[in-house]
Design a protein around this nucleic acid. Structure first.
Lengths: 142, 142
DNA sequence: GCTTAATAAGATATTAATTATCCTATTTAA
DNA sequence: TTAAATAGGATAATTAATATCTTATTAAGC
């Protein structure tokens, strides 16, 4: 990939600037990341990048549905590249966030049935302990 | 109910002040509500309440798990009284938020099976159109 | 490749949101 | 009723986010 996001920007009539590509690549690399971390990361290779530019672009990219807000409990808001619907798994031990792609249709249908609500999309976060941390805990006990 | 939250505060070794009771009653009355709305509402009957007190108490009450953050997409963070797990339904037409109490165990089990993640709790939001707004739309078409 | 119009970036000022500080008031247990 | 502990109110300080304005960059047409 030279510039995998160039076409995405063009498709939305947004100019493909170095700053925007840097922002998108950074978020893509990290999966989930908040504003400050994006700024720090980009700043390493791109010290002239202004925070105003970052805020402005993040908001624009969310408006154009290229980015998506990720609001996890007790954490600063993060952003991710918009992709197919998935569930966020948030590990309380290592603070890692995993994505899991799983069938949620039965739940959605049950909700529709019970409430009469027509669902267009859903946002699901589960808190707990990831596989790795579970094993760590287990070994330290036994 | 004279003071349904008095005992909750005492149980957490928090002093039962008028301000705290006002905050909790306000949130309880509204279900979901953000900081500014709480402030405005309480200000009507309690003009001397300081915003610092509000922020401080909201944070304390979250720490003690008496309140819970509600983070909905594209909205300011809200708060609710912590209660049994439920799903939030967010209507895109009228911006209303409904709670629905429904079995999520099958989904949680499937996630555990697929990911090895041990889930302690989950946070689910569904966006769409509520029953009332669906009917409104239908009548205006036909 | 140039030129130009449109858009975006950077710097900075402004505004809004949140937290910290300090002194006074209230709560609660003895 | 009193005293110690805690919380409130006012305000200052900090942090986050947005707006403004000027310069720079992008991209389309020649």
């Amino acid at each position: 990939m030279i510039e995998k996001f160039h076409d995405v920007l063009k498709a939305n009539n947004l100019k493909s600037t170095h700053q925007r590509l840097a922002i998108l690549n950074c978020i893509d690399m990290h999966g989930h990341i908040d504003i400050d971390a994006i700024y720090e990361h980009i700043h390493l290779n791109y010290p002239s990048m202004s925070k105003a530019t970052l805020y402005r672009n993040i908001n624009d990219l969310v408006t154009f549905h290229i980015l998506e807000e990720v609001k996890l409990p007790h954490q600063k808001q993060q952003y991710e590249i918009k992709k197919v619907p998935h569930i966020h798994l948030l590990c309380q031990e290592c603070s890692g966030v995993e994505d899991i792609f799983i069938e949620t249709k039965p739940l959605l249908e049950a909700v529709t049935l019970q409430s009469g609500f027509t669902i267009s999309n859903s946002f699901i976060v589960m808190n707990g302990t990831c596989r790795v941390c579970s094993h760590k805990n287990f070994s330290s006990i036994s």
